[in-house]
Computed example of a mutant assay.
Amino acid sequence: MRRYLLPLLAVALLALMASTSSWARVAEDKPLPPAQDKGIWLLTKLREIADSGQPLEKNYLEKALNIHLAGEVSYLDSSGCKFSHESAGGQNSRLKAEGGWYAATPEGVQRMEIPGYAINQAGHVEGQPTIYYSSSTYKNCTGWEDVLFKSETTLKFGAFPSFACVTPEAMSKALPEFKFTQATDGVAFFSYRGGEKVGQGTSITVTYRMGAKCMQGIKITQSTESGSTYAKAYSTFWPCSRKFFDIYWTTILKRPLPQYTELQKTAPGMYDILLDSEKEKEAFREYAVKQCGSFESIFQKYAKDKQ
């Protein structure tokens, strides 16, 4: 009898180990907040996502956070590209996740009062916790004054205090790598910048109002413009094109140098406004590209250098 019982026990033990391992994998694939410190858990998960540098795509976030996003996706028509800085089309996604683990809990404050401070009036935060996802992708007409493809994605956690009350003290203690910044109007931020693998910068912003009990809101954002590659291309393209625009204006067009503000110097479409005809605009683009390169070509060069 013992001779048959031992193999059966071994088989049962192996089955139990396999089941436990399988359950652990499922639990890992579908994260859920702990019994306590839910807010810190969520911020830690978002920090891991930011550090990964992965694109904040719908499928990736659904798996990473164990949520389901649903909503509408719309497509933008081309502007016709009358001007070089305009859009040649794009896509907008507006999704949200309701229910699931991101819901009101005893750990949260279901109606958080916000004191008035400076120009900001008193108010409160309440309601059903909801996750909002927005993502926009645009195609530039030429890549002359900007990159050809630009995107921005945000995942925002609405009514966060109802889910969990994270105090400034708890935030600073658990996540000291988040940088604290206070504005003069009573609004403060804890911010964190993550990794960058796709030419886009990823950051987390936690909003706080002075005098409130808990953090007010959380969002994680990823965009082309906040990436270091874009910043480097921007700081290269605009000073160069600005310099040669002045030369082109005074030596080739032989006109008095226009009076423009600092903002106008780097405003998309500025050249289209200052130059009179399509012929002049095209001539200047060809001239400037020879001297500086287009924004897109500079961006791609720096992106390649980082690989």
Results as ranks from 00 to 15, higher is better:
residue 79 S to D: 03
residue 37 D to L: 08
residue 248 Y to L: 04
residue 239 P to W: 02
residue 26 V to S: 09
residue 158 G to Y: 07
residue 284 F to A: 02
residue 208 Y to M: 06
residue 23 W to E: 12
residue 262 E to V: 09
residue 137 T to R: 14
residue 18 A to L: 14
residue 240 C to G: 05
residue 24 A to G: 14
residue 244 F to L: 02
residue 122 A to H: 04
residue 33 P to Y: 08
residue 62 E to Q: 11
residue 237 F to G: 04
residue 143 G to K: 04
residue 143 G to T: 07
residue 158 G to E: 15
residue 74 S to G: 11
residue 118 A to L: 12
residue 86 E to Q: 12
residue 94 R to T: 04
residue 66 N to E: 07
residue 125 V to I: 15
residue 124 H to L: 01
residue 34 P to Y: 11
residue 215 M to I: 14
residue 30 K to E: 09
residue 190 F to P: 01
residue 220 I to K: 04
residue 231 A to F: 06
residue 273 I to R: 14
residue 242 R to T: 06
residue 4 Y to F: 14
residue 193 R to S: 15
residue 199 G to F: 05
residue 63 K to F: 00
residue 4 Y to H: 12
residue 145 E to G: 10
residue 258 P to A: 13
residue 259 Q to S: 14
residue 273 I to V: 14
residue 97 A to S: 13
residue 222 Q to G: 07
residue 132 Y to I: 10
residue 50 A to H: 03
residue 172 S to C: 03
residue 295 F to Q: 03
residue 23 W to G: 08
residue 252 I to R: 15
residue 86 E to I: 00
residue 307 Q to C: 02
residue 106 P to W: 03
residue 19 S to L: 15
residue 129 P to A: 10
residue 186 G to L: 05
residue 145 E to F: 06
residue 191 S to G: 13
residue 114 I to N: 02
residue 85 H to D: 07
residue 72 E to S: 06
residue 167 T to R: 10
residue 203 S to H: 12
residue 201 G to A: 09
residue 207 T to Y: 08
residue 236 T to Y: 03
residue 228 S to T: 14
residue 224 T to Q: 05
residue 23 W to Y: 13
residue 255 R to L: 14
residue 233 A to D: 02
residue 181 T to Q: 11
residue 185 D to L: 08
residue 305 D to E: 15
residue 29 D to G: 06
residue 274 L to P: 02
residue 81 C to E: 00
residue 166 V to N: 07
residue 196 E to R: 11
residue 158 G to R: 10
residue 61 L to A: 02
residue 288 A to H: 04
residue 297 S to D: 10
residue 256 P to C: 13
residue 189 F to D: 05
residue 188 A to D: 05
residue 248 Y to D: 02
residue 142 T to P: 00
residue 147 V to I: 09
residue 217 G to C: 04
residue 136 S to G: 12
residue 139 K to V: 07
residue 161 P to N: 08
residue 102 Y to N: 00
residue 199 G to R: 01
residue 38 K to G: 03
residue 193 R to I: 09
residue 48 E to W: 07
residue 222 Q to C: 09
residue 180 F to C: 01
residue 268 P to Q: 01
residue 91 Q to C: 07
residue 21 S to E: 13
residue 25 R to W: 11
residue 267 A to D: 09
residue 57 E to K: 08
residue 276 D to K: 15
residue 113 E to H: 05
residue 175 L to H: 04
residue 125 V to S: 06
residue 113 E to C: 02
residue 174 A to E: 06
residue 123 G to R: 05
residue 302 Y to K: 12
residue 272 D to P: 00
residue 24 A to C: 08
residue 91 Q to V: 13
residue 150 K to F: 10
